[in-house]
């Protein structure tokens, strides 16, 4: 490691402290966005410096837990990036039809919206009963929300628009019931989904999958950690298995560049070569 600026050393020590004291491992996260989130957290906690936060976090578990939440990003929506679902329907669904049964791993599922979107897509393709979706996240709090499948009703308008742009074939409101300020997703959408805690940084493979979806999670990792997670994905995919990344993520700058063929280039759908 080269010589760091004082501010960067402070960040480095905070991250090391979080790991040695609590086992939360942010050591190979992309630094620029991590630094921004640490500074917003300082503001929210009315602390004036990173060393001050470090001292407090090491002794105060509640503060460390709040920091952990502050460092985690949970931006998601149902049918986020509609064109991804269109490409998935056109390019991946025909391949899945050839299997009597298939497994999907949705890694970093956050509060679950994109998992349920996949369930809806597969339902409309007549394939939902043939699959099992493993939806994982490192954060058990977001998983609780994901398991419930209850979202603020006011988001449904946006989700309906995205559902239509994604090529949805029915009326979106068929998939939820309104209850006061909430929309409760229909229970059948949950039937084939297993939610579970899994940390991409520290946990290994747990099954063999036909499809792995991991969108806008790896952008938060540095290149070393990205390579490590790509190794995990590669080893967890069956031959000719499908990998789906976020719109601006790419396999290009990783060690696994040559291990996949493009299936839908613009939508970052890849197919494992062998």
């Amino acid at each position: 490691m080269g010589i760091l600026k004082p501010d960067d050393v402070d960040i480095h020590l905070l991250i090391e402290g979080l790991y040695y004291r609590y086992g939360y491992d942010f050591r190979n996260y992309a630094k620029a966005s991590l630094k921004r989130r640490i500074h917003s957290f300082l503001k929210a906690e009315h602390l004036s410096s990173v060393p001050e936060l470090q001292a407090q976090m090491l002794r105060d578990r509640a503060c460390a837990d709040r920091l952990l939440l502050g460092l985690t990003v949970n931006t998601t929506a149902m049918f986020r990036d509609p064109s991804f679902y269109i490409a998935f329907r056109q390019q991946v669904v025909p391949l899945l039809r050839t299997y009597p049964f298939f497994r999907i791993w949705h890694a970093g599922c956050s509060t679950g919206q994109e998992v349920y979107s996949m369930a809806i897509l597969l339902q409309e393709a007549g394939l939902y009963h043939r699959c099992r979706i493993y939806a994982t996240d490192a954060n058990d709090r977001v998983l609780q929300t994901a398991r419930q499948g209850i979202y603020p009703y006011k988001q449904m308008q946006e989700y309906t628009q995205l559902y239509l742009k994604a090529g949805g074939q029915r009326t979106f409101s068929e998939y939820y019931t309104a209850h006061y300020n909430n929309a409760i997703l229909r229970p059948f959408l949950r039937e084939r989904i297993v939610f579970g805690e899994h940390n991409l940084v520290t946990d290994g493979s747990f099954n063999e999958f036909n499809v792995i979806i991991c969108r806008n999670v790896l952008i938060y990792f540095d290149q070393m950690l990205q390579n490590q997670v790509h190794e995990l994905f590669y080893n967890s995919l069956c031959k000719f298995g499908i990998l789906g990344l976020g719109k601006q993520e790419t396999i290009r700058f990783t060690k696994y560049e040559t291990a996949y063929d493009d299936l839908a280039k613009a939508e970052k759908l890849y197919r494992r070569r062998s």
Binding site: S33, R36, N216, Q248, E249
Partner: peptide
Amino acid sequence: LVEYGYFSLSVD
């Protein structure tokens, strides 16, 4: 965002 020698992205 800018890192040493490359760009990174975020959906924060």
